Simulated assay, not measured.
Amino acid sequence: MRKLLAILLFLMSAAPAFAVNPDEVLKDPALEARARELSAQLRCMVCQNQSIDDSNADLAKDLRLLVRERLTAGDSDDEVIEYLVSRYGEFVLLKPRLSEHTILLWGMPAALAAIGAGVVLIQLRRKRISSPTQDLSDDEQRKLDALLKGRD
């Protein structure tokens, strides 16, 4: 039983901890839920591959506090996002929006897939054209039949 408890404690200590400190949590559960949802959508500018909800960086903490401050001031979720984008740019969003600035980012995977499919089709057509099939001559057919009968 002690071994199981020790393993369980070890696994729990290895699990990633949430970066939100207790002093940041809002008293209103609905506002806190909105703040956590927004924080999960925003990129930590220091870590860059983590949301501010998961990051322990000082800037992430400042951004989490700013999100909560804006929510308690009465801003909607969209207004909070717009405010942060106006200050930090589109890079602050973990999932960039579709706009004229990001159309290349969103369109490139589809364009590369289409180009790849086109190249494959062209190669298959070239292969068919360059190596047309021919019927066997009567002599070749007799030899093939003899070889196949010999295998039986």
Rank of each mutant, 00 (worst) to 15 (best):
R2N: 12
K3W: 12
K3I: 12
L4T: 07
L5V: 12
I7E: 05
I7M: 01
I7V: 04
L9G: 02
L11Y: 08
M12W: 14
M12R: 10
M12D: 10
A14N: 14
A15Y: 11
P22A: 05
V25L: 10
L26Y: 02
P29V: 02
L31D: 07
A33Y: 15
A35R: 01
E37G: 12
Q41C: 06
L42P: 08
L42S: 09
L42M: 14
R43D: 06
M45T: 08
V46Q: 10
Q48H: 00
N49G: 13
N49K: 13
Q50P: 02
S51H: 05
I52R: 01
D54Q: 12
N56D: 08
N56E: 05
L65N: 12
L65P: 09
R68I: 03
E69S: 07
E69Y: 02
E69C: 05
R70L: 15
L71Q: 07
L71D: 10
G74M: 10
D75Y: 15
D77W: 04
E82Y: 02
L84C: 13
S86C: 02
R87A: 13
Y88C: 02
G89K: 00
E90M: 12
F91C: 07
V92G: 03
L93R: 09
L94M: 09
P96D: 00
P96M: 01
P96T: 01
T102P: 05
I103A: 08
M108G: 00
P109I: 02
P109G: 00
A111I: 14
A113G: 09
A114M: 12
G116Y: 06
L121I: 06
L121R: 04
Q123K: 06
Q123P: 03
R125Q: 12
R126I: 04
K127T: 07
R128V: 07
R128A: 13
Q134E: 12
D138H: 05
D139L: 09
Q141W: 11
L144C: 05
L148I: 08
R151K: 11
